[in-house]
């Protein structure tokens, strides 16, 4: 639940930042478009299986909010979108991840392959955003809070997976490995966040 709430908080922080400042400066449209793709391919099971009302509502919210974020960046506040600095090649993520999900999955069915694709893609979808921060050498505090909440969410899931492994015998190798990779990608950022942002400074990297 803490993981889900952290994820929800991250999405709300980002939407509020864009909406209140009427600007998406410093935000990678590519990462946001990848997240929309992640939620779309993962939550196709909305049509096939019902888990709980909570589960359904969260899925719908994640899908709708991700497309809304993409709409804000690429249409409504397009003039403020910093495309010159958002130069990470998304196809270098989508194509290998697509290949891997066809090769390594737990069941060779369309829905399962798309789910696997979404798990793999999510683990690396933040790279365009982290690349953008490293390229411009700075991030606004609010962007840092967003990244911290978003990174924490998968880290919190790891604790839940450990719990579920011991008490329910539940273990999803694909989700666990991807979740660990995803969390590791944030480690450098977590370090900067704790040493700088929490001490009232904004993230600036040496040129």
């Amino acid at each position: 639940l803490c993981g889900d709430m952290s994820h929800l908080l991250a999405i709300i922080i980002l939407l509020m930042k864009i909406w209140k400042t009427r600007s998406c400066a410093g935000i990678s449209g590519k990462s946001q478009a990848l997240f929309a793709l992640v939620f779309t391919t993962r939550y196709l099971d909305l049509f096939t299986s019902f888990i709980s009302l909570y589960n359904t509502i969260m899925k719908v919210f994640f899908i709708v909010s991700s497309y809304f974020t993409v709409f804000l960046i690429y249409f409504k506040f397009k003039a403020t979108y910093d495309s010159n600095h958002d130069t990470f090649r998304a196809e270098f993520l989508v194509v290998p991840v697509g290949g891997l999900s066809i090769l390594v999955n737990s069941e060779f069915t369309p829905l399962e392959i798309l789910w696997t694709f979404s798990i793999y893609l999510e683990s690396v979808a933040i790279l365009p955003q982290l690349f953008m921060v490293s390229k411009t050498g700075e991030a606004e505090s609010i962007t840092s809070h967003y990244l911290f909440a978003l990174g924490s969410y998968r880290a919190l899931y790891i604790f839940n997976w450990i719990y579920r492994y011991y008490f329910e015998g539940f273990f999803d190798l694909i989700a666990v490995v991807s979740g660990c990779v995803q969390t590791i990608l944030y480690c450098d950022f977590f370090y900067l966040y704790i040493t700088k942002v929490l001490r009232g400074k904004k993230i600036t990297l040496p040129a």
Binding site: D4, N55, Y157, G169, F170, F171, D172, A175
Partner: peptide, 10 residues
Amino acid sequence: AKAAQFHDEL
């Protein structure tokens, strides 16, 4: 450990 029958996580 058993594999997930369906995905109950978000």
